[in-house]
Amino acid sequence: MEKVWRWVKPFVEIFMTVCIISLLVALATSIPFFRSLQGFYLFLEKLIQIANGFLHMDTLTVQIGESRTEHFLYIISEYYPYSLIILFSAFCVSFFIAASLSYIYFILPKKIKKWISSLLFFIQSIPDVVFIFAIQLSIIWIFKQTGWLIIDPIAGMDKVYVLPILTLSILPSIFLFQTMILAVSEEYKKPYVELARAKGLSKHHIWFHHLFRNVVVHVVSNMQYYFWFMLSNLLVLEFLFNMRGFMAFLRMQLHQADIVAISLTFLFLPFYLIDWLSKRVVFIMTGEKDVSG
């Protein structure tokens, strides 16, 4: 029974979450009419529309712009991978930056450490929007001064990758860095590090062979929070960079209850998978049920 439940549970959870998402979307699209009973009927109507959408996903069409109508699945296949690629590569970049920064931090003297952490504390307070403005403006400024356009700051018809990925990875890499530093300083007090140091192993060796692996576990167990944070930023990023991504598409379709609900489900599924996988990985790596507590 226990074993069956373990395999059925994810599906039950997914089903329930999708139901909640649908309810929310139906409520949101009918909220201005809730002054009278009409709002309630509209709410039910929207729910039925969403359910229909889920059942007949292959025939669902989306209107884009004034005159273009496309199949929903085709649109998804166009926008969805693009946004996911941006998101995941931004995460990888920020993980890489955070890991290398925390290694440098680890070998630095104490005085500079304090300096860096207070600097990061300040940078952390700056909203990501400001970073985007600053990057766009500075690229334009360089262009005006030298006539050299490094990267086109605003996407046209083609897809841009480098700039959005870099911009999206700034704040997560700071957060990741701080998590890593915290985890390192916690790990550093543990007896196995003390033993390794007593054996005369170098700082470098301890970092790569012992500390880093254990720190990764911390990061993996908190991965979903970073993605949640990055998703919020992605929406604004796609708007400001004029990207033709999934979130920008969703923003244009806010009034279409069925499309919003299905798209949100699409957004939810990979992250549920990541969440589930990260829990499994942490379990296999450490044998602990849940590190984050």
């Binding site: 979450t17 909640i20 998402i21 929310l24 979307v25 409520l27 949101a28 699209t29 909220i31 201005p32 979903q224 949640w228 998703l231 919020s232 992605l234 929406l235 604004v236 979130m247 969703l250 923003r251 806010l254 009034h255 919003v260 949100l264 957004l267 939810f268 992250f271 549920y272």
Partner: peptide
């Protein structure tokens, strides 16, 4: 459900209509 929908999107969903 709330955790996987970015909060900005959720508020947008309600505030735009």
């Amino acid at each position: 459900a709330y955790r996987f929908i970015p909060i900005i999107f959720l508020t947008l969903l309600f505030l735009v209509p």
